[in-house]
């Protein structure tokens, strides 16, 4: 093998190596021309951190250009993120609406009040039931008289034709089509129950629409993620072209592919992370902008609904995801273009 070791300590402290070392030491094996493993590991780590910092500084050195790339990435990530937030909010409204989706249980006519109260207690024991409202036939008739506009007709009746009704409020975890259907069957099997009514269609439709919207957001997000990959890939390709000379020299003096790749991968990572941070800010600004009109609107409907933004965890995940996309985009560009640059 060629080469010579960094002789363990060739010079005394302060001694200058103006004179070449004697030829004798030169014949030592070249295995020595490599640095020791431990030192190499340290140097490897050091190179990672310096490369990471250098790539970031390089990006900050051309602020306008970097900002443009960051913005493109941010917009591509903020769009699906905003849709995701919107979907989450609609789902929240949906849940509060579903809360009002109660099950009407019509009791056999002529059932004694005690028996109906017992039935009500039994229903309450079900985990899927949140509350049960007992409406006596008299109360039902009074309500009918007040709201139907047929008060006179009602007064003419000898007998109250209305049955007792139990309004069952499903528990939150039971608000989905399958659980509600199961609950309906359980209630229908009870003694004294004449009929159970549940507006299943409405619940089912809302559920389906939500699923559809969720998939739409996912597909949209995937498309835009691919866009981010391409944008970052292309930016990295340009960076590789710009540093062609450097890559050639590094390869000539024995730089491995990993060494050559490293700065570009970090550049991609920074593009992704920067874009992700900007995206989180864009979503936050958008929510802030919308939150007060939404609150007013909700107040008009006597609702205490408020817009919910990205939480800390969601935001962190978004930034990490963007970073990963950046890294992946850089990797694609590097894999394609770096091997084409070989010293000739």
């Amino acid at each position: 093998m060629i080469g010579r070791k960094p002789a363990a300590r060739p010079n005394k402290k302060g001694a200058k190596s103006t004179k070449p070392a004697p030829a004798k030491t030169r014949s030592q094996g070249a295995s020595q021309s490599r640095a020791r493993l431990g030192d190499k590991l340290d140097a490897w780590q050091a190179h990672h951190s310096t490369t990471a910092i250098e790539s970031l500084l390089r990006l900050l050195g051309t602020p306008l250009q970097s900002l443009l790339t960051w913005l493109v990435v941010a917009i591509a990530i903020a769009l699906p993120a905003a849709l995701y937030v919107a979907l989450n909010n609609v789902q929240n409204i949906g849940y509060s609406w579903q809360d009002s989706s109660q099950i009407s249980v019509f009791v056999e006519k002529g059932a004694r009040e005690n028996a109906v109260r017992e039935l009500s207690e039994r229903l309450l024991e079900d985990d899927a039931v949140n509350a049960v409202d007992y409406i006596t036939p008299d109360a039902a008739l009074a309500e009918f008289r007040a709201h139907s506009g047929l008060g006179r007709v009602v007064d003419d009746l000898d007998d109250n034709p209305l049955p007792a009704v139990l309004l069952v409020q499903p528990a939150e975890q039971a608000v989905n089509p399958q659980a509600l259907e199961a609950l309906r069957t359980r209630i229908a099997d009870q003694a004294l129950v004449a009929e159970v009514r549940l507006d299943m269609q409405w619940v089912e439709r809302l559920h389906q629409i939500m699923q559809l919207a969720g998939r739409g957001v996912l597909a949209f997000g995937l498309l835009l993620a691919m866009g981010v990959l391409l944008v970052i890939g292309n930016t990295i390709r340009l960076a590789i072209e710009n540093r062609r000379d450097e890559i050639l020299v590094v390869k000539l003096v024995g730089g491995t592919d990993a060494f050559v790749r490293r700065p570009f991968l970090y550049t991609g990572l920074w593009y992704g992370i920067g874009g992700g941070l900007l995206a989180v800010m864009l979503v936050a600004i958008g929510l802030w902008w919308l939150s007060s009109p939404v609150a007013h609107l909700a107040d008009l409907y006597q609702s205490d609904f408020r817009l919910r933004g990205l939480g800390w965890i969601d935001s962190l995940q978004l930034v990490l995801l963007a970073g990963l996309l950046g890294l992946l985009g850089a990797w694609l560009a590097v894999a394609r273009h770096l091997s084409q640059i070989e010293p000739r």
């Binding site: 960094p6 640095a35 030192d39 140097a43 003096v253 024995g254 730089g255």
Partner: peptide, 17 residues
């Protein structure tokens, strides 16, 4: 310094050489 950095030498060794 480039060939030394590429070969993974530590900073003080790089400076000396």
């Amino acid at each position: 310094a480039l060939p030394l950095q590429v070969a993974g030498y530590q900073a003080n060794e790089v400076g000396r050489r």
